[in-house]
Amino acid sequence: MERFGRWAGAGFVTVAGFVVPTWLCGVLVLPSVLEDSAIRWSVASALGAAVAALTGMWGYGFATRTREGGPSGRVVQASGGRAVAVGGSNSGGISTGDTGATGQSPDQAAGGNQTPPQAPAQPAPGTVTATGERSIAIGGDSTGPLSTGDHHGGAQP
C-alpha cells in the first residue's frame, strides 16, 4: 500500500504543478501584459507544462526510491582485517590490498602461515557483513572497481 500511496502523491503533486502555475499566470500575472486571451492562456499553459514536467521527474524519483538505513533495521558491519562493508550502492573504487612493489605475500610478511578464519554463520536478512580478511560486502549496486588482492610491480603470468 505504501508504493501506491507514493505514486498517488506524486501524481497529485504533478497535477498541482500544472494547474497552479497555469491559473496564476492566466488569471493574475499575464492579463496586464497580454490582452489576447488565446495567447495569454497558451503562454500560461506552456509554463504550467514546464513546471509539471519538472514535478513529474521529481515524482518518479519519489515514488520509486527505496528506504535504506534508519528504521529498516539494516546492519552494516566490517569486522575482518582490511574489510569494507557498504550498506547502499557504491560508485567509487575500493581496494583492500597493498599496491607496493614487494614480492612478499601478506602471510610471509607477517611471519609465516596463518590459520584461515572459520566461515561465519549466515547473517540475518538486511545485514551487510564483511568478516573475512580483505573482504568487501556491498548491500546495493557497485559501479566502481573492486580489488581485494595485492598489486605487485612484477610481471603477471
Rank of each mutant, 00 (worst) to 15 (best):
G80C: 12
I94Q: 02
Q77V: 06
G73M: 07
T102L: 15
A38H: 13
E35S: 15
Q114W: 02
G93L: 09
R40N: 07
S105W: 03
G81Q: 10
D98H: 07
G70S: 09
S95N: 10
R67V: 00
R82E: 13
A46S: 03
A109I: 06
A38K: 14
A109K: 11
A78Q: 04
G87S: 09
S91P: 02
G48C: 03
V84A: 09
A83H: 10
L54Q: 08
G112D: 04
A63L: 04
T102Y: 13
L47V: 12
T64P: 00
S79M: 07
D36W: 15
P71Y: 08
A49W: 08
A85R: 06
D36S: 15
R82P: 00
S42H: 05
A109Y: 01
G69Q: 01
Q104P: 04
P106L: 14
T96M: 06
A110Y: 05
R65K: 02
T64N: 01
V86G: 03
S37A: 15
S89E: 13
G112Q: 04
V76E: 07
A38R: 14
S72V: 12
G87Y: 06
T64A: 01
S79Y: 07
S95I: 04
Y60H: 11
A83S: 15
G103I: 14
N113R: 09
T66L: 00
A46R: 00
S105R: 12
G88I: 10
A78Y: 07
Q104R: 13
S89T: 14
V51R: 02
G61Q: 10
